[in-house]
Each structure stands twice: as structure tokens, then as C-alpha cells.
Computed example of a mutant assay.
Amino acid sequence: MDAAHFAEHSGGMQRIEPLGGDEFAPETTYLNSASCGLLPRRSAAALRAAVEESVSYGTMGRDYFAAATASRAAFARLMDVPADRVALGSSVAVQSAFVAASLPAGAEVLAPEGDFSSLVNPLAAHPGIKLRTVPLEALADEVRPGTALVALSAVQSLDGRIADLAAVRDAARTHGARTYLDVTQAAGWLPLRAADFDFVVAGAFKWLLCPKGATFMAFGGDLGRGEEWPAALHAGWVAGEDIGASNYGPIRPAATARRFDEPHAHYSYVAAEHSLGLLAELGVSTVHAHNTALADHYRAGLTERGLTPRPAPGSAIVSTPGLADAEERLAAAGVRVAVRGGLLRAAFHLYNSTDDVDRLLSLLD
């Protein structure tokens, strides 16, 4: 992290300034990125311009595909995969249903207990799939020869626990299972290797600072290169190899991961291009160091007050029991956090500072 990012408290403690310069100026103390992120000013400006353009050119704009193509490439760079390995979607749940449909009848899917419903419910609901859940910490050890897919979030939404991704990847490879990784609570602040997993999905409206409606699916492993793509069961005209000839009748799906594209929400991807560009400028490693330093500062403050957050070492999400009733008081004071599962959840991102952490702690007093 750049030394200019720090200043000194009068008491000698390091003070952490927000990243992103004047891209953010929230009227609240916003500590709720695990629910949804703030929109950068550059993204908001692009969105306003796109809405104004629609007055004369329709809601698909003058070029429906330009921002989507740029967003695909920007996400691919952040995840270190080729752009032709990324598909555009609308929600994690839709992508989970697609992954479920790619599995053979009777397939066992292994997932952590209590993982986010958008990831696991479409798998559980799919006819013929047998969903088995185990504690997150036991996930790698519970992969067995009959396991067809291991599905998990890289970071748990409820309490910020980070999965042992290398152990899960290696166990799945040992037993011939595919892997499906949800990085919605990780992409943008946690360094990741998407190529290590078969399916990697990201709802981009949290840490990636995009509007709802921007979702990305990256393909690692051998799918589409040396091994056939899964069937493009929800392919529409945008997924055709020749888009201009794909409006009527059955299509020939694109040779790349674009064969899994949904007709995208234009405005969401107009903003996404600029939000992902900002994260690329800052660098995920810089954001990671910033976020985790703030989270550690908050954990230390909780401990000083006799409070014990759920263990989640190295996470930007801190969830604490016994504080759920503080949410209403915090909201009235302009501090945005969340309550999940009876835990007060605070999430620290690039636009936060030690001043934000200290304000939260003082209000908890």
C-alpha cells in the first residue's frame, strides 16, 4: 500500500485514508459493501449519460454491445482469465441453475452449510441432484469419489469466513469433481485465481461497485478447450456466433463463453465498465491491504470493549454477536451496516477510513 495512503493520529497510531480520491463522497458512514457497494462518480456520470442517450436512441443505446464487451474484458483482467472465457449474466441464481443443468442425473453436489441461497438453492431444487452440506472447514475433507461438483462461496456472506480454496481445489481434482466458486463477496478485494476452478460466478453489485444486473461467469479448467462446452440451454440471440443472423429460429452458439450470455441489462454494464476500470487502476492487492487493515482495526476495537466477533481471519467482513439491536440506532446516526443471522455485520471497502471505523466503535459505546 502506498505510504501516502497513511497519515498519523495525534496519538501516534496510523490513520488510513480512503482510496479512489474524489470518486466517492457518501453522505453516510457506509460500512455495508457486503450488501451492495457504492457507485463511483465516474460510473454514475456514465449512467446518467446513457439514460439521456436513451431519450433519442432507445434503451439499448446507440451501441448495445460496446459497454458489455468492455466490461467483459475488464472483469477478465481482474480475474486473470482471457475475455473469451467470460459470460455475461443477470444474477448468481440464474448461473447456478445453468451449472446444475450441466450435471448428470443423480449427481452429488457438495456445499458448505449455510452458504448463500442464490448459490445453493438452484442446485438443491434441480431434479436429480443430491445436495450434501458439511461445515465449511470440513469441505475439502468431505470430497469423495462420488462427488460431481463442489460449490462454495470464496467468502461467506454471513460472517466473512474465507474458504481454504487451494485445499478444496486439490481435493476436487483428486476425486475428479468439478468446482463452482461464487466470488460475489470476494472479487474486488480478495486476490483470486479464477483459472483454478471450473465455474466462477460474481454478482458485481457488491465489492465490484457495479449496479445490480451485472453478473459475470468465468470458466477455468478444460471446459471449451479440449473438452466440450456444456449445453447452452438458455442461449438467446446475443449468444449466437453471428449475432446479426441469430434473431430467428435455432442459433449456432458462439465458440467462446459468450454462448452463455444473457441479453444484458444495458445500463448496468455501462456503469460496470467504469467501476471495474477504477478497481483495475487501484489494483486488487492495494484494495485488499486497505480493507483488511480497517477490518483488523475494528476487531481490535471490539476486543477492547469486551466484544468477540466471529472468527474470520484476513476478511474484510466482521460479524459480531450481541449487537443486532444496535443497527437501528446506527442507521439513525447515518452509519450503514447490516444484521444477518443475529450478527451485526460491518464490511470495509476502499472508500472507508479509520475515521469510519472509529465512528462505528464510538457509537457502539
Rank of each mutant, 00 (worst) to 15 (best):
P211V: 02
D296M: 01
A154I: 06
V339Y: 02
K206L: 10
L364I: 12
A316Q: 07
T215G: 03
T308S: 15
P321F: 00
W189H: 13
R225C: 10
A50Y: 03
A34E: 02
G301V: 04
G20R: 00
L88T: 04
E241M: 08
R132C: 09
M79N: 05
D164C: 06
G106V: 14
R72Y: 00
A331K: 11
A107C: 07
V155Y: 11
L233Y: 10
D22F: 01
A202W: 05
Q95I: 06
G244Y: 14
T147L: 07
A100G: 03
V183I: 11
G106A: 05
V150A: 15
M60W: 11
L123M: 08
L279Y: 00
L330G: 14
D164I: 06
G240R: 00
D196E: 04
E241K: 15
D115L: 09
G58K: 01
V337R: 02
G203E: 13
V150S: 14
R144Q: 10
Y57M: 05
H266A: 13
L131W: 12
G128V: 02
A300F: 06
A138D: 04
I243M: 07
A194C: 02
G146H: 13
G188N: 04
L344W: 01
R173M: 07
V109N: 11
V81L: 06
T286A: 06
A45V: 13
A83V: 01
E17M: 10
A140W: 13
A67C: 09
S268C: 06
E327V: 07
R15N: 04
D170K: 14
A254L: 06
A347Q: 12
A255E: 10
T320Y: 10
V339E: 00
P253C: 00
R48I: 12
G224F: 04
P82F: 03
S275N: 02
L131H: 14
V99M: 12
M13Q: 14
D222N: 06
A326R: 15
